[in-house]
Amino acid sequence: METVMLDTGISERGDMQKSRVKVGIKKLDLFYSDFQALKDVNMDIEEKKVTALIGPSGCGKSTFLRCINRMNDLIPGCKVTGDILIDGTDIYKENIDVAYLRKEVGMVFQKPNPFELSVFDNIAYGPRTHGLRDKKKLEIIVERSLRHAALWDEVKDRLNKTAMGLSGGQQQRLCIARVLAVEPSIVLMDEPTSALDPISTGKIEDLIAALKNDYTIIIVTHNMQQAARVSDYTAFFLLGDMIEMGPTTRVFQLPGDKRTEDYITGRFG
């Protein structure tokens, strides 16, 4: 049996005293019409940590991720019950402003999706959307976001050229910078490197490590090495159930459930 050994610096208890729960999920069920895609999921996600969601295709991990910024609202026939609390506020309450929620909870998608605009306008899109017009401030935000996403040096001379000309990896970092520009506190990443080559993947993983100082990151990944490399906590999903969750080193070295062990060791999935 081969498991991935990585010291993430987190012992089973150690750092946990300092941490606080950023996202609390309680009794979450999700239905696509008659099909139940998530079954009674309970989870606490800690602030300024990276939480990885793993599991085979169709297990509900992406669906779960999309509950946290309510992107599932766009899917006809999708119904969510239970609570998701962000900083103690239930985001499925009636008077929640979904646009504001999505400003607070940014999302990076599987396929890089820059707009057919210049690099600058891509980054400025979010702030402008939320009412910022001041050119000076926008310039500051664009530079800061691009630096934060480790892309500034590569694009600083082509801010006014189309973002479609960037490489796949650059486009994905641009999309991360675009998210950072609206100053979220949580960043959701839905298999952010699955369309990228290994070098670009490495850069995004370094970026994730750097970003967790300021952001709570939840990442869906098919790549277990990636989960082991970048995350502090790992949750394993199977057929709509959250099987187990714990510190990544513990989940990978000492899985508490036979099904987790089978998946991690590559016996299925």
Binding site: N69, M71, L74, A99, Y100, L101, R102, K103, G106, M107, F109, K111, N113, P114, F115, E116, L117, Y125, G126, T129, H130, C175, R178, V179, V182
Partner: peptide, 25 residues
């Protein structure tokens, strides 16, 4: 669809997404 999702996920309204991303594209 990714363009629309990208815009909505940044907190833009449906109409903002239409006017600023979908129609120009």
């Amino acid at each position: 669809a990714g363009y629309k999702e990208g815009s909505l996920a940044l907190g833009a309204t449906k109409w903002q997404t239409m006017v600023k991303v979908v129609i120009p594209t």
